[in-house]
Amino acid sequence: MPWYKKPQFTALKPRPAAQQPHKVPDGLWHRCPACLAILYMRDFVANLRVCTQCGFHEKLSSKERIEMLVDEGSFQETDATVRALDPLGFSDSQPYTRRLESTRKKTGLMDAVRTGMATIGGQRVSLAVMDFAFIGGSMGSVVGEKVTRAIERAIGERTPMLTVVTSGGARMQESTYSLMQMAKTSAALARLDDARLPHIVILTNPSTAGVMASYGSLGDVIIGEPDALIGFAGPRVIEQTIKQTLPRGFQRSEFVKEHGFLDMVCPRSELRDTVERLLSLLSGPARETTEESPASASGNGHASARAKRTGTTPPAAAKRPAGLKPKASARRKKA
């Protein structure tokens, strides 16, 4: 073979796209769906599932969400045994009963919301945390009932209500029963409002439709996680209706805040502190006031007068657990 025909380099043929190993092994690595960075899973989880490279906020399970928000070990779940039934004998690609059964098995959840009592910075709250993994966080009879009970519990125990939303809307398989849950939960919030107890709502990606047209929009303070989809109609429905593509950032947290329907956009790393601060501001007398302190008589007088009006007592101070503070890098980079 003449020397000039001898290949000097070994050519590497790229593998066809289908063969490329795109799946990272489960549990060890995480690929950010926004910036495609490969992250070490342990770092990613320690960072509250926020991409350390681009700040993308990945969905959290209700369990993780509760862990990141409340004082360690303080969560006491309520109504954990409330189960969905199939009142209409509904069947789409599979019977609703089978869908429920397989989703329960897959997620270990009973339905799309977990409720309970917990403390945040020592302040007792009634909590409702939704979970997208259970049929898209959809609201049927169980979600409506459990959220309503959580609100009623807040009223009964005179605590604030904290709701974390992630939902695609009402659950179609329960049809009009699901629609009525919007009225039921909103009626309960009217009572919470009458009782002058705060409702704090955290909207996470995605928060749309039925839940947003009820308790998701009815917070005294509404906080959005960065870049979460928040709205009434889904973007696909709007595009089909107006026959145009939607502008970038439409229905995202920053857009919603700009239009006046979010109090703030808060990165996950600052969420817990923000909620804790809001709770202390909105739910009673200033926490710094001591039993008797003539020096700060005016502030104290105001606090005790308010306590008398609302029937609350100052919450016991509690240390926040160590090890929950996320890394600073969790803060989302400004685009």
Partner: peptide, 12 residues
Amino acid sequence: RGQAEAIARNLL
């Protein structure tokens, strides 16, 4: 203009 908020407010 807040379709979701407008409906939710009415429910409450």
